[in-house]
Design a protein around this nucleic acid. Sequence first.
DNA 1: TAGATTGTTAATCGATTAACAATC
DNA 2: TAGATTGTTAATCGATTAACAATC
Lengths: 207, 207
Amino acid sequence: MEVSKLTLRRLALYLNHLWVLKENGIENFAAPAIEKQLGIHHTQVRKDLKQTGLIGKAKIGHNVIMAIESIEKYLGWDKKQNRFIIGAGNLGRSLAGYSYRHFPGMDIVALFDNNPVIVGRIFQEIPVFDIKDLDYFAQKLNPSIGIITTPPEEAQKCADLLMASNIKAIWNFTTAKLNVPKNIIVETTCLSSSLAVLSHKLTNIEI
Amino acid sequence: MEVSKLTLRRLALYLNHLWVLKENGIENFAAPAIEKQLGIHHTQVRKDLKQTGLIGKAKIGHNVIMAIESIEKYLGWDKKQNRFIIGAGNLGRSLAGYSYRHFPGMDIVALFDNNPVIVGRIFQEIPVFDIKDLDYFAQKLNPSIGIITTPPEEAQKCADLLMASNIKAIWNFTTAKLNVPKNIIVETTCLSSSLAVLSHKLTNIEI
DNA sequence: TAGATTGTTAATCGATTAACAATC
DNA sequence: TAGATTGTTAATCGATTAACAATC
């Protein structure tokens, strides 16, 4: 059966938490403790972990390190994968800087831009190449994901370029709706959606 | 009854789409067309719009401009509200640059940072102030939302400062779990959650 | 042992989709 | 008028929570 999107999102949250536990040298964790700390029901936590193949021990719970490995493997974050970012503006540069710590398996190897002032520069140790050379570098580095952080007007053109270079997954940070064939995976992160939730709560609390 | 978070998120998506229609001078739109373009079921679209008070006309649908106004009002995006960003790194600078076009009602009036190299500079026409002066500017500008874009280790400290300056809503872009009293509204945007969905799909399609 | 935690099944809850009469 | 679209109610679907026996 298809795993739920919501489970996948929660797995990322567990990981964030487990890394902190690991850093603090904590060996085991239990679902009821996660419920307290992250506000996710303990039964839900167990079901989510089970999806990744994890089996706990009664009274003890789960081993932190084994759980991290299991979740990372399940998400495909256990092996290095090259990623490209299209659009070397502030958002692109910001994502280029996310370290293994927060995005394991997320190795940005190149930024691309069409602005000659930016092309050739280096941000967070990642070089900015000319968008015209995307295909050349794609052949060389074989990236699995292309991340689009351009203005929305450029997004479709960038998606087309990525697909032409045989990239199968796109992480879209623009508001544009991308037109792609069914075999291409697109995940759109719309920041204004999150703001909508916050804003609405705020206006209603003030009444 | 409480409106669903999912409805609020979708309302932001409709807005993105409606702005484009408005720019193209289109007067009316219908739910079945939205379904085609955004992949959201037409019954769902009508229910969501109805939440904001919109009533359509059979055979015609809804007026684009009226719908935009209704959704913006519902989300509290119809009136100017000052916002502060804590953390003037790339992500903070990026958000500072979001225009009214994508984030109406989202007026960033100040960035704050503790890095003396950055304090005093201006990004996207927004000045960076010293975090020590947060309270002074909060009294002056009365911001409704504080946006945290610092490293996760600093996030709780920033949240405490925001609350001390009487800010009631926090948009948290870090992986840290913030400890706040119930009357404070927190919305956490976890970028790695979206990546998790994409990554998992990618690993499974390759099998 | 006693009791905390596990995994699983059943019950509940909420969200999405289907069906359909009303309407412009 | 005919037919596209509306709003609403009912049916379905899926996700969350409750209950509980098993276990370490």
